[in-house]
């Protein structure tokens, strides 16, 4: 079977991001990047499926040329080949889904695994829109995936708001990874070196003939208002008085 997995290059979620003074976006100079952690979980799941039987794993990313690093990371973990759609423009979830739709129509995977969302924009939309474009079943926020022996169906445990949702899908299908699906492995030297020589195709976005005109426009970015400092009160009566007259909670 063929599994297509996404690997978005995102700003390091462990580093605090700063908004540009003019509010036009986030400062990207000097920022570290890494693969979206949820995508990394999706890649790990693809490799576990491959280890239980035959599978070819294709890692796809959309972004600047530097995103080959995030793809190589997936190849080092054990994926087989990579595709980078080279794009410098800002893309909304719909555009991302359309680009992936084009790739899927050429690659014809049996299963698409994606992170449930990317930790930069936190949109949580691309997989759902892609499922709609393809007309495929989808199971988002998977914490457990079990493929049938003939690999025609997938049983998925989804983390829903009120508890766990057990669903069964016919493949081909799209499944997105929740944090608790697995713990991704670290690639070590043999994997890292092998990955350097695995096939990685770069496709300029402009050559794909995909309409990526954004439906979502970002008008302004701003940092959350900083929290006001608290005050100390000398005694209980003052506390009660302030809660009643200023906070108005009593």
């Amino acid at each position: 079977m063929k599994i297509l997995v996404t690997a978005k290059r995102v700003t390091d979620p462990d580093v605090k991001i700063k908004v540009k003074p003019d509010g036009s976006g986030v400062i990207t100079e000097g920022v570290d990047y890494k693969v979206n952690p949820f995508d990394e979980i999706a890649i790990e799941e693809a490799i576990r499926i491959k280890e239980k039987g035959q599978a070819e794993i294709v890692v796809v990313s959309i972004g600047p040329s530097e995103a080959t690093k995030e793809i190589r990371n997936g190849l080092a973990m054990g994926a087989d080949r990579g595709i980078l759609v080279v794009a410098s423009e800002v893309l909304d979830s719909f555009a991302v889904a359309r680009i992936l739709h084009k790739i899927v129509s050429e690659e014809k995977p049996d299963l698409i695994l994606m992170g449930k969302q990317a930790v930069d924009g936190d949109n949580n939309q691309a997989a759902q829109i892609l499922a709609e474009l393809l007309g495929w079943p989808q199971a988002c926020f998977a914490s457990k995936i079990t493929l049938s022996d003939d690999r025609k169906k997938a049983k998925v445990v989804r983390e829903a708001d009120g508890g766990l949702d057990h669903v069964e899908l016919d493949l081909p299908a799209i499944i997105t990874a929740e944090l608790r699906l697995n713990e991704p492995r670290y690639a070590s030297l043999p994997g890292i070196m092998k990955a350097k020589k695995k096939p990685l195709k770069e496709i300029p976005l402009a050559s794909m003939g995909v309409d990526t005109k954004p439906k979502v426009v970002w008008h302004k970015f701003s940092e959350p208002a900083s929290r006001k400092a608290g005050i100390k009160v000398p005694d209980v009566p003052t506390l009660v008085q302030k809660l009643r007259n200023e906070a108005k909670v009593l």
């Binding site: 070590s188 030297l189 043999p190």
Partner: peptide, 15 residues
């Protein structure tokens, strides 16, 4: 560099 070498298990930060 083979399985017998400690470097075999090195990760990106080690390298």
């Amino acid at each position: 560099i083979t399985e017998a070498c400690p470097l075999w298990r090195a990760r990106e930060p080690d390298l």
